[in-house]
Design a protein around this nucleic acid. Sequence first.
DNA 1: TTGTACGCGTTATCAA
DNA 2: TTGATAACGCGTACAA
Lengths: 355, 355
Amino acid sequence: MTKRITLKQIADEIGVSMMTVSRALNNHPKVDKVTRMKILNAAERLGYFPNYVARSLVTARTRTIGVVVPEITHSFFPDAIKGIEEVAYSAGYQIMLTHCAEDTGREVAAIETLASKRVDGILASVAEQDTDFEIYHRVMKWGLRVVFFDRCVFKIGASCVSVDDEECAYIVTRHLIEHRYKKIAHLSGPPSVSISERRLKGFLRALNENKLKASNDWIIEAGFHEEGGYNSMLKLLELPMKNRPRAVVAVNDPAAFGAMEAIYEKGFRIPEDIAIVGFSDDIRAPLMPSPLTTIHQPAYDVGKKAAQKLIRHIENKTEITENITVKTQLIVRNSCGCKSKNQKFIRQLTDQKRE
Amino acid sequence: MTKRITLKQIADEIGVSMMTVSRALNNHPKVDKVTRMKILNAAERLGYFPNYVARSLVTARTRTIGVVVPEITHSFFPDAIKGIEEVAYSAGYQIMLTHCAEDTGREVAAIETLASKRVDGILASVAEQDTDFEIYHRVMKWGLRVVFFDRCVFKIGASCVSVDDEECAYIVTRHLIEHRYKKIAHLSGPPSVSISERRLKGFLRALNENKLKASNDWIIEAGFHEEGGYNSMLKLLELPMKNRPRAVVAVNDPAAFGAMEAIYEKGFRIPEDIAIVGFSDDIRAPLMPSPLTTIHQPAYDVGKKAAQKLIRHIENKTEITENITVKTQLIVRNSCGCKSKNQKFIRQLTDQKRE
DNA sequence: TTGTACGCGTTATCAA
DNA sequence: TTGATAACGCGTACAA
């Protein structure tokens, strides 16, 4: 087990000072060509690798970005993380990834640890039940930059990157209304999360604008996952026939999948008996027995834009705080009642390049 | 923007030395109860957070694990990363995630950066075309522990965690043979990756044991993704009727999906005209028009076991190097020709808990 | 162009 | 039980 080489050892080897070595290795202009070559050669030969921990202590920069997500595997996040990693890599940053499993305490602990590890900034998507955002205030006071993505916290002076949830929910709901559905239910997300609230709002707006009544029986909390969608849909299906909704707007695709499972299980057809639309364009959406009509959320792009904004915040202290909205797209398939043309069912083959 | 509090400031506040503060904050036993309380209070009041960068410089430990994957979003990896994160979190480590987009150069650069950032160990799954593993030797010489998972590099003295690829490929192939298929093709992975080679071997063994001829025309490189599976399958379908395979063993599920797309596109049925099996039990496998028979690979578990092994290597220098095999399961659905019983199509609802 | 002195915030060591 | 001092490896600021 070889010990690692330090600047000093290279300096001794060549017979110059550590500073000259440091400068040569960092491409400082004012180093003699010959000595620079000697230093570079020695560094190569000895197998020198800089110690970024030591450098960070001096510069108070780590070139590391902390990323906090509620669930690594949850549909949208792998793509978003990839977008983040891609931007970070290009800008010379690494990412430290933490997931909090939808647990607030763990989220707070993660932020604290990231702060202690002196990341230069944090990209966060908050957990479901979060209500207290004091930790974010605290780290921001230290100059740690925070950018929220997808599940945002507004009004605490951090930039946010997300889709226009309210508008999108409005659009899918309106699409259902155009199919002449009158009795439309909503499987909502956890009320404390910004996107749940905004999607609900968009849903209600579409109903109002079309003079449709929004029944409380038809707005039912399902959460963000399959299980919740399944259970909530079951409740909806237990409603007496004449009071049963004919269409459903799910807060996201996983909830819609769960609901579809319930619908089929009870012997109903989609969309003939019950139409349903989702939100996020999960990789599974085109593969459902009745392909799911949904809003395509460019997760990769959200991650990318969030990372870009954060890095600008880090590198330019006067960068303005703002809410960035990324473009979405209504993806019409069959579950809404439309007849979609034949299309490839594997997404990677149909997608245009996203980069 | 408040400056961050240091040990020294707490020390000055209380009128003790930095060392006493350090000891109190680190739960050292030999600190007077009263002074400890005073220190804890002051730390709380001033909002002290330790600087782990400084600590790491002196302890030569970062409690950070580097993770290198070829593709963050590629089926198996999000789950594996989640398993890694879970174990790391429990053991008090953070993970630094890098993806190399299947690019060797980027993989090498990632390892170097992680080494420079002084991670305590590295969890790696290698890129497709990798042939030179010198970088791993180099960092291991410095005492950096490496554990490979899924796509392993054997014989360089690092532990590996993976499934028994050869045996699994043997099992799915045999399953096809039990359906009395004689003409079986293989969509293989990139030849340089260990798992491709081992799966091919298992495929061939099953053929040999059953005295089936393995035609070179029927072993065709598809790579690990949908696109490759699609293109390779197209070639297979262009073969003259009597020379066309009746069944296909794909190197993994994405390749199988691509192949299925091609099969349907050409107007064939699955499994009536052509049967196909995959490998990995991708989240989409049960949702295919003909649900895909495949090998369930417990990605979460692979990540977990790999992280556990790595942490043991880090914390116990005498930990033995070994190859760990995790259990898999043949998931029989329809694409192989079996009639599967009705089952829920959303995986999260059917899965038993994996933890 | 090169070198010296110092400091970054913490822990290890040894002495008190 | 506490404290002084010296690291850890590097970059900044200034001097030569």
